[in-house]
């Protein structure tokens, strides 16, 4: 399996990562190296081995239903480039 320059450009666009042609030229072989490397793992026979979902044998912890957080609007909005009337203000987004 390998990726084409078009696929890499597409993925970059979906992830909103701007990419120059020079970067693209460098990244395509790099990504293909990684993919080839992962592909090697597929050669191992894993028949009868349970899928490993985490390296530490732990269970997902659940939280009790209690209000323990929030009510910190100033902190939430502090890093926003623009905020008005308690809202984040962003360039108009409407279809």
């Amino acid at each position: 399996m390998s990726v084409s320059p078009e696929q890499v450009r597409h993925i970059a666009k979906l992830a909103r990562i701007a990419m120059s042609n020079a970067e693209l030229e460098r990244l395509v072989p790099e990504l293909n190296n990684i993919l080839g490397w992962v592909e090697q793992l597929a050669e191992v026979d894993t028949g009868g081995v349970e899928p490993l979902t985490a390296v530490i044998d732990q269970k997902l912890r659940l939280r009790a239903d209690a209000i323990t957080d929030g009510d910190c609007r100033e902190a939430i909005l502090a890093n926003a480039p623009d905020a008005e009337h308690g809202f984040f203000a962003v360039p108009k987004v409407i279809e």
Binding site: I67, D69, G86
Partner: peptide
């Protein structure tokens, strides 16, 4: 009372961004 993955409140009609955790 709280959200799916955080301890912020879920009540309808609160002031904007007052029921938001980090």
């Amino acid at each position: 009372k709280a959200k799916m993955f955080s301890g912020a409140a879920t009540a309808f009609g609160a002031e904007p961004n007052t029921q938001v955790s980090l």
